[in-house]
Nucleic acid binder design. Structure first.
Length: 844
DNA sequence: GTAGCCTTGAGC
DNA sequence: GCTCAAGGCTAC
């Protein structure tokens, strides 16, 4: 495992200042149904605002408390030694034999890691978890659905219900059958961790709260700091920039000197705080290079879907068909997002009035074919046109796409140097200074600030300085008006920006746009997940520059979204499935159910992931095997259900198992990108995953069923009612799920709360298998703090909501256990749901 | 410290 | 093998 960089810093979650406490009546240790209370302490920091007149400082990453202007100390732990430290934990006693087995298994894991890393040194860098995970499928047969992924409305019930075992037990008790899954998870996590980039900006992932500012509510008892996004752009950096700019909505501090780019951006940060810690850390990249490309090992995020060629944005942000761009092309083009405050904040150059452009991807997003033209970009702007335009920062000639925007070579180098060397420039004039070709050297503070403002991404700088390869992250680009005006009228441009921005956000959840579904999702995003829930406007939703009272209100609400929650939300798309994926996962079963041949393998749509491709291939190669395997589905058998449909709906159950199996891949991928999860050691990541996968599946299922009382939503129109559950022998479990869903509905759980709770469930540290339980607990605390701050800020009338949300977790655990008990899965050879089967087998 | 050019490496 | 976005090198 590579050493963590010395600059790796992690926010210390130790309490500072006043304290408040709450109990988490959660027992995520799946080994038993016992519940344990976890006491956590939140704090309010002491006010120690300070801004120093420093011209240039090299930022230290020592352990320190960073005083913030709003009075919150941001403790930072530097030189975190990632990893292999194993803390013997008390709690779950183990027999000597178990201990021995566990040791042996852990040793196996270590050996696997070593071998893998050794192989990586000589071989190609592993590219994706999908690829890793698809391996067992080769052995175990197809899962029927290809890499199908579920959207929010898809089905997972079965997997959740069918989960008969206790994952953590599987991990901890060294069941031999668990080794395969552990190996897979290990491989996956290993790639995340072992790759040098996995250490990149760990602060970003674990320091989420560091950038938070105290909520503007006195009721907030914890030391959470919010980062009110005043801008409309998706980038948290940009958002912050807008806020910090004097020309924006907020005036510059009275102190004229300390306005370095960094200080003004991270107003909560100490002037001495490293750009890495103060900026990078807080703004946990939502998309990790690890995720995206197979290297998938870096901790700083990019997303697999977001490679420059398969940009995340490209994948996510394609405008819906029929949009005003209306070319009907599945383009990877750019989406325009005007920056209203931009011009005023940076003063008058031609670029100041530029439109901010969110791009589907850097390169191939722009030009996946390398043809040099942007494929159906909204305004029909080619890559060449963009490159020929002036650098949005200084006006020099653009040399390419650097760190998230098209910029010149000098600004690219400047940004790299500043971040890598942790410069902390301060504008002696208090900024903003004009930044042009002739003046760009005069004020690095304002230049850097403009870099950020224009969309350069800190997360694009690789902490480990790994060269080459692709990077993927959500990009925003400043497009000069001159490039838009000939194509769109100002009004059109604004409207386009609004529509595209929303579409941009939407596409984070859907790689293959289908207009109707996108419209529905748009409505969901704008109105909340369900009609009865309220969803605070996400900053990333705020691309619309058309200021209305409603949008302003949403912006206001969005401003109180803890950054950590926003970061978690930013990776939520990894949890979701696209329509194409759903179609794939549903098709085989439909064919199966209809008695058709296993032509299920002939997926109608092109595979969008390696996993899907692989599964498609497997299905094509073994269509009959797939059918046969479904006929002998051990899940069905173990559930006392025959596959001939006599007393059950095999299609339903097999489908659910199939979905669950694929869902597990999604979960792994999602976990990788979670800001808090990424800094946890490999072993602990595996442990946590094994520990909570069932709860995660079940919880997501319940949440998506909020708007369908009496029904648990399955994939695309599939629903299961209590009566249907009785037929399938799942009555008790479904009943509990419905009950849990009722609670979620009653509590009006919104999407932010939902994603936060998932992370809390995932980061349950109450297991003796964790090597760094304290660290995991600290991460969970941050998630808890984020959730608490959010609920207090958004639902001040229901201060008990936070506690009530946590109280649902034991229900969730009990429901999972019940489902497992109901469907005592017996391990059988030839299981076709590899990952799921491995997990299930490992528990018995 | 700047900035132009080079090298690297993943995706296609 | 090409593209391109990373980091590296080095003259200034």
């Amino acid at each position: 495992m590579p050493n963590m960089s010395s600059i790796k810093a992690e926010q210390q979650s130790a309490p500072i200042g006043g304290t408040g406490s709450y109990q988490l009546p959660v027992n995520m240790c799946t080994s038993s149904s016992n519940s344990s209370a976890m006491t956590m302490t939140t704090t309010t920091g002491s006010a120690t605002p300070s801004r120093h007149n420093v011209s240039v400082t090299n930022i230290k990453c020592e352990l320190e408390e960073l005083p913030t202007p709003n009075g919150n100390l941001v403790p930072v732990i530097a030189n975190y030694n990632h990893g292999s430290l194993r803390i013997p934990l008390s709690g779950q006693p183990h027999t000597a034999e178990e201990e021995s087995d566990s040791e042996a298994e852990l040793t196996n894991i270590e050996n696997l890691k070593v071998r893998r890393r050794a192989a990586d040194k000589n071989g190609p860098r592993p590219m994706s978890w999908e690829g890793e995970l698809s391996e067992p499928e080769e052995n175990g047969g197809s899962c029927g659905g290809g890499g199908a992924e579920l959207m929010e409305t898809e089905t997972v019930i079965k997997s959740e219900v069918c989960s008969t075992s206790t994952p953590i037990q599987a991990a901890s008790t060294t069941c031999p059958t668990m080794q395969p899954i552990k190996t897979e998870l290990e491989n996956i996590a290993g790639e995340l961790q072992h790759h040098p980039r996995s250490n990149a900006y760990p602060v970003s992932s674990c320091n989420g709260p560091a950038k938070l500012k105290l909520a503007p509510t006195q009721s907030d008892p914890i030391n959470l700091k919010y980062e009110p996004p005043l801008g409309d752009n998706n980038s948290p950096l940009l958002t912050t920039r807008n806020k910090s700019n004097s020309g924006g909505h907020l005036p510059l501090p009275a102190n004229p000197s300390p306005d370095s780019a960094i200080h003004s951006v991270y107003t909560h940060s100490s002037p001495s705080q490293s750009p890495l810690t103060s900026r990078h850390a807080p703004y946990t990249p939502s998309l990790s290079r690890n995720n995206s490309d197979a290297s998938h090992s870096s901790c700083y995020s990019y997303s697999s879907e977001f490679s420059p060629t398969h940009s995340p944005i490209q994948a996510r942000h394609a405008p819906p068909a029929g949009s005003i761009y209306g070319n009907g092309v599945h383009h990877h083009g750019m989406l325009y997002r005007p920056l209203k405050a931009e011009a005023s904040s940076t003063g008058g150059s031609s670029q100041e009035s530029a439109q901010n452009l969110s791009m589907d991807s850097a390169s191939s997003a722009m030009d996946p074919l390398g043809s040099g033209s942007l494929p159906a970009s909204p305004a029909g702007i080619s890559r060449q046109q963009l490159i020929n335009s002036p650098c949005p920062i200084c006006g020099d000639k653009i040399s390419g796409f650097h760190y998230g925007i098209f910029s010149c070579e000098s600004c690219k180098g400047f940004f790299k140097r500043t971040v890598q060397n942790r410069k902390n420039y301060v504008c002696v004039r208090g900024g903003p200074c004009q930044v042009s070709i002739s003046t760009r050297k005069k004020c690095p503070a304002c230049r850097f600030e403009k870099c950020l403002q224009k969309g350069m991404k800190l997360e694009a700088i690789r902490e480990d300085r790994t060269r080459g390869g692709r990077s993927t992250y959500q990009c925003s680009y400043t497009l000069p008006n001159s490039m838009l005006s000939p194509l769109l009228s100002p009004d059109q441009a604004v409207a386009a920006a609004a529509v595209a921005s929303v579409a941009n956000h939407q596409h984070q959840h859907q790689q293959h746009h289908q207009h109707q579904h996108q419209q529905q999702r748009l409505q969901q995003q704008m109105n909340g997940f369900s009609g009865s829930t309220s969803l605070p406007a996400s900053p990333s939703l705020g691309g619309a520059s058309i200021k209305t009272e409603e949008s302003e209100a949403k912006t206001l609400r969005a401003s109180s979204i803890p950054t950590l929650l926003q970061e978690i939300m930013d990776v939520e798309h990894l949890w979701q499935y696209t329509d194409a994926e759903l179609a794939r996962i549903n098709q085989p079963l439909s064919a199966f159910a209809s008695g058709g041949s296993s032509s299920s393998s002939s997926s109608s749509s092109a595979a969008s992931t390696a996993h899907q491709n692989h599964q498609q291939q497997q299905q094509q190669q073994q269509p009959h095997q797939h059918q046969q395997q479904q006929l002998t589905n051990p899940l069905l058998a173990s559930a006392g259900l025959s596959s001939n449909g006599e007393n059950a709906n095999p299609d339903l159950i097999a489908h659910l198992c199939n979905v669950a199996d694929h869902r597990l891949y999604k979960i792994v991928k999602w976990c990788k990108s979670l800001p808090l999860f990424k800094n946890i050691s490999i072993d602990d990541q595996i442990c946590l995953l094994i520990n909570s996968w069932c709860e995660l599946l079940l919880f997501s299922c319940c949440f998506r069923s909020i708007d369908t009382p009496g029904e648990i939503k399955m994939s695309q129109g599939r629903k299961i009612t209590l009566s249907q559950a009785k037929t399938n022998g799942l009555q008790t479990c479904i009943e509990r799920m419905l009950n849990l869903t009722d609670h979620l509905r009653r509590l009006r759980v919104d999407r932010y709360e939902y994603v936060a709770m998932k992370v809390i469930v995932l980061l349950q540290s109450d297991t003796s298998e964790l090597h760094e339980a304290v660290k995991v607990r600290e991460c969970q605390e941050k998630a808890l703090q984020g959730l608490q701050a959010y609920t207090l800020a958004h639902y001040p009338d229901t201060p008990s909501k936070f506690g009530e949300l946590l109280l649902r977790i034991p229900d969730l655990q009990r429901t999972c256990q019940l489902g497992k008990e109901m469907l005592t899965i017996k391990t059988r050879d030839g299981a076709d749901f590899n990952l799921l089967m491995e997990l299930l087998r490992g528990e018995h």
